[in-house]
């Protein structure tokens, strides 16, 4: 090893050394963890003392405020919309996944068409739905047909389901694809009809993928900011909007932190309840 080695040579040398020994590999992992710890985990954890505001004359004040009616409503709404979105999305995703797994034609194209929206910014996709539902929008302009859905709960659910649909297709498709075709054939040979085969063989075997998909969609939808912000009205405010409002409009970081912490605790609590019904480790293995 010479001292004159240039920049690139030195970098590859360091990485090469790193690939060599076990201790160095552990250090590489530690470096990644340190970065996430320092610039993600620590900032999130610091919201806890921030929310308690212990130095002030009125500690826990923020938490008392969280129990207020309008904020409780926002929590209930987040989990409710999250749940309804999950049900709608899973139904649509199951159809698409079934088509992808058991149809023989143009599956590659169909798969690309499902994945492409994942690569397009949420804001653009919500904007598209806004255009669709807008009473003075292009659809109304072209067909004369107007909906009064915009800024209502169904509009928000439509938006959330649209945006998170591709996330749900992937795990369901994987679990359907993994089903041994011989099992389906056996069911048919033994005299079960198409529907009986679906409900008694295919559906139960795809359950792990379905549960994983539901989990992803629920977490994403319940925490959505843009869905209600673009497509909802004042009565569709979800928890993310309340947090943003507390911070951006009222500059109240203590209250925003308290809301964020209560939300995260509730979400983790829900996941733990869920864990007693399904094995979370196994579910996450399906993603």
């Amino acid at each position: 090893m010479s001292v004159q080695r240039g920049g690139l040579g030195r970098v590859t040398h360091i990485i090469g050394e790193g690939l060599e020994g076990r201790i160095a590999n552990r250090h590489l992992a530690l470096f990644g963890l340190g970065f996430v710890g320092l610039f993600f985990v620590l900032p999130i954890l610091l919201l806890i003392p921030e929310s308690l505001n212990l130095g002030s004359t009125t500690p826990f004040e923020s938490y008392r405020r969280v129990a207020n009616g309008i904020y409780v409503d926002a929590f209930v709404r987040s989990f409710l919309y999250g749940f309804v979105t999950t049900v709608v999305t899973l139904a649509l995703a199951y159809m698409l996944s079934y088509f992808l797994a058991f149809s023989t034609e143009r599956v590659r194209t169909a798969m690309i068409l499902i994945i492409v929206p994942l690569w397009i910014a949420y804001i653009v996709r919500y904007f598209g739905i806004l255009l669709f539902l807008s009473p003075a929008g292009p659809l109304a302009d072209l067909t004369g047909f107007e909906t009064d859905l915009l800024f209502t709960t169904p509009a928000v659910i439509i938006g959330l389901a649209n945006v998170y649909l591709p996330f749900a297709v992937l795990p369901i498709y994987n679990s359907l694809n993994a089903i041994d075709e011989e099992l389906v054939n056996a069911s048919r040979v033994l005299g079960a009809g198409k529907w009986r085969t679906i409900t008694k063989v295919i559906f139960p075997l795809s359950l792990p993928g379905l549960v994983a998909a539901g989990l992803i969609v629920f977490i994403l939808a319940a925490g959505s900011f843009l869905g209600p912000a673009v497509l909802g009205g004042p009565n569709q405010t979800m928890i993310a909007n309340v947090i943003a409002q507390a911070f951006l409009d009222n500059f109240n970081i203590q209250f925003a932190s308290a809301l964020a912490i209560v939300y995260t605790v509730l979400l983790v609590g829900l996941l733990l309840v869920f864990n007693t019904l399904f094995d979370l480790q196994e579910v996450l293995g399906n993603i």
């Binding site: 993600f40 900032p43 999130i44 610091l46 947090i243 943003a244 925003a256 964020a260 995260t264």
Partner: peptide
């Protein structure tokens, strides 16, 4: 949203 407020504060 939580990431956003945590980072800006930090």
């Amino acid at each position: 949203v939580i990431t956003g407020i945590a980072l800006v504060r930090y």
